[in-house]
């Protein structure tokens, strides 16, 4: 399907991306994380749910009281923290993928329709989006989870809903900018129908900002899901989700710093890496930034 022109376009983008040191560091971390997610069964030293009553709240291996094979220590019921973090990465990546796919697909669809047809359809869609935007995202998600019941799946639906308006607005604005351009009119004159014009002619030319937004939403999804897990409104213990792990660790804050430190560090590093990639991607995809 891909023409030589498209290939060279992605090639150029990659060449610009490569010049960003931050972007490359972020990408490297994400690749390692992805490998850990795929091969979790092989690298994790223990089963994430396995409790060892002989090793409760064991400090990390490099401290005096700690010892191998519990590299990052154990939690209050003797589960290996490193193994739980590795399996927890699965949840975070899964959450990010589901949430972003949901809001990108639905958001783009609504945005294209609003921008292409305008008129009352546009008004209705955009008013609904304004209403969603009026609620702070985490609070809206909390409210929804309160109705649907606290679980990881419901948390993901709720977060996807809070992200929807950003994709709708972005797509709509871009579609409105493109739809009266010569190539679209030419295509229409040549007999292309509305569906073809919307999704085949116009949409591919609106992709760059959507890709950047999707990347940044991915990190927000992970952060919000972890926050919900921490508040007890997302993934429920004993799931090794990072936010839920932090919620469990809270009461040991004065006695066992490692139980609190590592899950949060995992969230921070993952979110930071995605944001680094997102920033680099924006610079690489935005031609105006390239010249400067």
């Amino acid at each position: 399907m891909s023409t030589p022109l498209e290939q060279s376009h992605w090639h150029i983008t990659w060449n610009y991306f490569k010049t960003s040191r931050g972007g490359m560091i972020g990408l490297a971390f994400l690749v390692i994380l992805l490998l850990a997610v795929i091969f979790a069964d092989f690298i994790a030293p223990f089963d994430p749910a396995l409790q060892n009553r002989q090793a409760l709240l064991l400090p990390p291996a490099w401290t005096e009281a700690g010892h191998l094979p519990y590299l990052l220590g154990t939690d209050a019921v003797g589960r290996d923290i490193l193994s739980r973090l590795i399996y927890g990465a699965r949840y975070s990546i899964f959450i990010g993928c589901v949430v972003v796919s949901l809001s990108v697909i639905i958001g783009t669809l609504l945005g294209v329709i609003a921008g292409y047809y305008q008129g009352w359809v546009d008004t209705v869609i955009m008013r609904i989006m304004d209403i969603i935007l009026a609620f702070p995202s985490l609070l809206l998600a909390l409210g929804m989870v309160a109705v649907l019941g606290p679980s990881l799946i419901n948390a993901m639906y709720a977060i996807a809903l809070t992200m929807l308006p950003h994709f709708v607005r972005l797509t709509r604005a871009n579609v409105m900018g493109e739809k009266n351009r010569d190539y679209v009119i030419a295509s229409r004159v040549a007999g292309a129908g509305n569906l073809r014009l919307m999704f085949k002619t116009i949409l591919p030319n609106c992709m760059a900002p959507l890709i950047v937004q999707a990347t940044l939403s991915f990190s927000n999804a992970i952060l919000d899901a972890a926050a919900l897990g921490f508040l007890g409104m997302g993934a429920q213990p004993p799931t090794p989700e990072w936010g839920a792990m932090l919620a469990e660790a809270r009461e040991f804050i004065t006695r066992a710093w490692w139980v609190v430190t590592f899950p949060g560090l995992a969230i921070l590093l993952t979110v930071l890496s995605i944001n680094l990639v997102g920033d680099a991607l924006r610079d690489a995809l935005d031609p105006r930034m390239r010249r400067s």
């Binding site: 936010g243 609190v260 899950p263 921070l268 944001n275």
Partner: peptide, 22 residues
């Protein structure tokens, strides 16, 4: 700034409590 922007503040708060309070 990017680190701050990526920060899970519920964890950041716990860390600061460990350091400055306890």
């Amino acid at each position: 700034a990017l680190t701050g922007y990526s920060m899970p503040i519920f964890w950041w708060g716990l860390l600061l409590i460990i350091l400055f309070s306890t």
